[in-house]
Design a protein around this nucleic acid. Sequence first.
DNA 1: CTGAAAGCGCTTACAG
DNA 2: CTGAAAGCGCTTACAG
Lengths: 346, 346
Amino acid sequence: MNSFEIARLAGVSRSTVTRVINNYGNVHPKTKSKVLKVMEENNYRPNATAKKLSSKKSNVIGLLVIKDMDKSSPSFLVDAFFGPMVDTIIHTASSRGYRIMLDITEENDKNTLNLFHEKSIDAGIFLSWSNMQPKIKEAVKLGYHCGVIDFDFAIDRDDSIVIMDVCDKKSAYKATKYLIELGHEHIGFITGIKSKRCSIERLKGYELAHLESEIVINESNLFEGYFNEEDGYAAVEYWTELGKMPSAIFAANDKMAIGALNALHKKGLRVPEDVSIIGYDDVILTQYTSPKLTTMKVPVSEMADSLINTLIDKIEGREDVRLRKTFTARLVERESTAPIRKIEKK
Amino acid sequence: MNSFEIARLAGVSRSTVTRVINNYGNVHPKTKSKVLKVMEENNYRPNATAKKLSSKKSNVIGLLVIKDMDKSSPSFLVDAFFGPMVDTIIHTASSRGYRIMLDITEENDKNTLNLFHEKSIDAGIFLSWSNMQPKIKEAVKLGYHCGVIDFDFAIDRDDSIVIMDVCDKKSAYKATKYLIELGHEHIGFITGIKSKRCSIERLKGYELAHLESEIVINESNLFEGYFNEEDGYAAVEYWTELGKMPSAIFAANDKMAIGALNALHKKGLRVPEDVSIIGYDDVILTQYTSPKLTTMKVPVSEMADSLINTLIDKIEGREDVRLRKTFTARLVERESTAPIRKIEKK
DNA sequence: CTGAAAGCGCTTACAG
DNA sequence: CTGAAAGCGCTTACAG
């Protein structure tokens, strides 16, 4: 059963059937209802592939996931960001009549842009922890709109690229400021990998909050981490040996905060009575530690929602869209932070 | 740039270009290399949509996720099963040259089979906690192969349906047997929702292990749960009030085991010294509780891998494929279980 | 408001 | 081993 058959049965031309299918409007009501009836009776559904070929529009958006070579974990979806992000993207896309086609490739894989070359999609979203700028530019050159969550690379502005990013500096500033307002002046900071822009920005935010409150940062308050649980553990051991345990610790991500929490427990220090801890990300686990971890929540779902919506606006030719939006992490106050103890002040 | 252009530039017919593209073999080596060269020079890539339309084969498999109406959570990917499952499916499909098209609908949504009706996919995999049997049958009637992970519904055998399931009875039997071998005779069981087949099966496994070891089950050892953390907590309170705390607890899922663990901590009972606990599922969280939770791991990735591979075999016309495979959960021994204390035996 | 014709970019028999 | 023709099932101008 195809549009030709429907046309024949309804006594009209294929053009008219097309008009009815796509609700073009310029069809006589009687003709329209007749065609509709015939389609209904024959349980007819237009062939999406044929439609795509002739109309040059697929209503499919590619989700290009680039596997991280570093991580042995095969499971990108279990990632604190990718899972909720993909989830939101699919939901929102679906509500706007778009389907998602998933493609997984590795960094520097020459097949990354296959979906574009084959013309299987209308636009693409890149999900990756590595720098996708070159690939994105290539896709844009091919004539496509692209979307990306820019966690770390300061991607160039371009009229075809929709970008959502997080202001790490401001977010880290908020976290540090919060601790300072609780009365802490001796705040340990477990940094992220130093080569990453996000780590540098977070450090800047930490510094800014101190500067603003005119608190001098002791060099020994800084401990370089690599985003792993062990690093948080090591930081606490470092401060213990040094005999300079901070009254509050800010970790550049939740995993390290959890590591620090465990180390503190082991040393017999209570959280938050003896030491406050704040993390960054708002991983699910933070709700299951004891005490529950106070952290900075990165609004991944909002970012993903905004990304896909803006991208679709762009595809559909809307002109008044903001191509770039910057988000700030939000403080989620749980149980691991408290005002500095008065006894200490005495 | 299309196949016609390539044909012209290479001085051959479009048929020959098609033969080269698809590696049909019956092409003169010289002709082939010439065509290949022209394609290369022009950075030509066949249009996937056109190919699909003429060949009736898309190399796209639909992943039909059916949202659970019960759960308020928008995030199906964060689910302990769906995340790793989708992940594995995409990876394996990709390695075999298939793409995944994602579609999310709700239960009883009349659009669930759209991807089939539109002929956008070659086959479909259903991911759902509700009974998809009717929808699957409909898709089969439309001429498609389908795949499904059957956690609970005992889906009928059919030559077009690939089914992977878990033997809950055997898995629960293994868990219970393990506790019995540790010397426990007074084993509490927190059941799942009683209307679910998987809950009934798990109860049967629990009973079977007792029967085999000739241990009589005290009726008060059973506590009806609904798969939530609170239920595990309530179970422990129930046994406390009754004054009949089991020496070991088997919870029908990890969430309830965690609830029980928390309740035990609150009551001042030590795990595993006073009470052993074993869960079911192997959720990530089980590795972060203290003590770490012993549990029964459902091999989701293996199941998903087997599912997609078998489905593709079927699509490609292989005849010697096993359409149904049954898996058993595997014991993951961590820290929450121990032999019964000798003092208690005195 | 409606229709006839051409086209989207491939593949599939068929013939040689 | 190769080519000419027809076809997949739609949509897009164009003409009326």
